[in-house]
Write a protein that binds this DNA or RNA. Structure first.
Lengths: 343, 343
DNA sequence: GATTGGCACTCGATTCCGTGGAGTGCCAAC
DNA sequence: GTTGGCACTCCACGGAATCGAGTGCCAATC
């Protein structure tokens, strides 16, 4: 069927173009790939593909180059999932298994991902919002200072030091501590925020108003939990791979370098990534930023027990090895999720 | 005196070259700067400067460009310290005063520094080695889990969770806690490390050997303190400024991008920075890495009470505005030091 | 002795062909 | 629907010509 062949031609064009970075012509195509037809036939197919907007020529009498739409079709229908080699699998596990804590896991992941894909890797720290409060601890650092430690189910630990306005006796501290624990332990962040705010305003259940210390502690906890810095934290790695962009420098690398430092922007770029094994691919102008119309994003969610706590992925030129990249992103996400499962 | 004039010529060459990024010729020089001599005279001076190795021509019949040696002389003898404008001063203080904790100070500093200098900024987190232990807290997270929190005089807080091998009763925990506190509170990191190792091997002063829990806690504390990740932590900002490098891309930007991710390399690059107000400038090949022979580093130490706890600075092309950059680096370091003083 | 104007010379950058070749589109034949 | 053939297009590449900024040197001048 000729429809099938046309798709095969598109696939071949994408593969060749990704491999060589040069517009691919009809003759080279039939030589390098075993399509059993002549170059003239391929030319006809290419004309159709061009009409339909999947490929384009940089100028008359040059070969064809895939358009965003072409890449899209390639990714959606033409990609055969290529499994990671066992060597790669082993590399992933040995690399990630050495991690000592959550931060370390994230940092190793970026590194690993950027090396596997030779692209810029981005890993979001697990978001607070879906996690629950495992423990809160209040530690006295003298009569006027209090260390507030917040431990979340993801393993994230936040701490703040509070300068108390008044003094706080040991018994009062113990009381406050157990009060706070009763209020928030096991709750999700969202629930805890509500409960804490109520506590800060209404005071304890027995009817007494909240003490000054209570208000301060509540304040700092609320602050910790809602601090968007936490939601917005991401790790970036492999920026050196940008040097391979070659030409199209100011047009592509510059805005990307800028984006890499704006973590909020980065997160928006990563986007809402499909949960559970599904890898999202955003190609060129499909993304939210015009300046990045020649970059693609390959991302997926990760987290313990199949729930997607955070996102991880890579950013690269639209002209990239999608199958390989998608496989790497998926493999790393899976492995990281498994690690979080165990913790 | 002609010697003086030659230096003036060198200064003019450096300034023009930095401003225009083009080799500067004798005619343009006398026009733009008010040296009261003819271009022929300047040519003679330039010939001498070239003989002495301060300037060079990219090719015959082109203008002159400063050599590393020329920049060096410029920085050492020809730079008049240009004070920051009051607007800039105000920007610095408003920008940094909003910081909520140590990490925040560091992160704001990189950002600020990169914006002021339009270069890549690097700020080292205050090193552990010279700081002292302010407090250690052990928090039980159930019978088998223990949270170990380490608080340092710099305000840095490190925490780790320990999976205990055996159970630990509350009284035992309290005992262990006070033992550890007696051992390390107030000590420098170096002292604390020694004392802890002794504790882990010999056990408590009363002659009993160390309990299993003690060994584990000691281990994790030692680990926290000696973990070189802490010494090696740096924040980087303004990488987008690399896009301004224009040409000389693979030769300069690539290795630099790589270095920016290798924090150990970065620290070596920043080097041992002069304490107290002194700004160190490392020009081109004076630095430790060959690949970075066309980049310069401007850095200085900072820290509370005049002692230099850590280093901060910028990395940029040898062709940069040294006076302005040095002023910015010094100003930021001073301001950050003042903030640390207060804390 | 230092400075200056003048002048010949050098050499990269830019422009302008001319050419080669890859690639296309179309058409007639199968 | 496929194929071989063919005329056509247009970029990339290389060489020649030109331009001009900048130099080095020298004789004249202060």
């Amino acid at each position: 069927m000729q429809e099938d062949r046309r798709l095969a031609v598109l696939r071949a064009i994408v593969e060749d173009y990704v491999a060589t970075d040069e517009p691919v012509g009809s003759k080279a195509l039939v030589e390098r790939h075993g399509l059993g037809v002549s170059s003239a036939t391929v030319r006809n197919d290419m004309a159709v593909l061009e009409d339909e907007g999947y490929i384009t020529q940089p100028h008359t009498s040059a070969g064809r180059v895939p358009t965003d739409k072409g890449y899209r079709l390639f990714v959606d229908r033409l990609t055969t999932v290529k499994p990671m080699s066992t060597a790669e699998r082993r590399a992933i596990s040995t690399f990630l298994d050495g991690a000592v804590d959550l931060d370390d896991v994230v940092q190793r992941s970026v590194r690993l991902l950027s090396q596997l894909t030779r692209q810029v890797a981005v890993v979001q720290y697990p978001t607070l919002s879906r996690s629950t409060v495992r423990h809160v601890e209040l530690v006295s650092l003298g009569a006027h200072r209090l260390l507030v430690v917040l431990i979340l189910s993801t393993g994230r630990v936040e701490q703040r030091v509070v300068e108390l306005e008044g003094e706080l006796a040991d018994e009062e501290l113990a009381e406050l501590r157990s009060l706070v624990l009763r209020t928030v332990t096991g709750a999700t962040i969202a629930e805890a925020l509500v409960a804490l705010r109520a506590l800060g305003e209404a005071g304890e259940p027995d009817g007494r108003g909240p003490s000054a210390a209570t208000v301060q502690v509540v304040e700092v906890l609320v602050d910790s939990m809602s601090d968007h810095r936490n939601d917005a934290r991401v790790a970036v790695g492999g920026a050196a791979n940008l040097a391979r962009y070659g030409d199209s420098f100011d047009s592509a690398v510059r805005p990307l370098l800028e984006a890499l430092e704006e973590h909020v922007v980065l997160l928006k770029l990563l986007g809402e990534s499909g949960t559970g094994g599904l890898v999202t691919v955003r190609i060129g102008a499909e993304g939210p930023y015009e300046e990045l119309s020649s970059t693609s994003v390959v991302s997926t969610g990760y987290g313990p027990r199949e729930e997607s706590l955070a996102t991880l992925g890579i950013v690269g030129p639209t002209r990239m090895d999608y199958p390989g990249t998608m496989a790497a992103v998926r493999a790393v996400a899976r492995y990281v999720s498994r690690i979080l499962d165990e913790a």
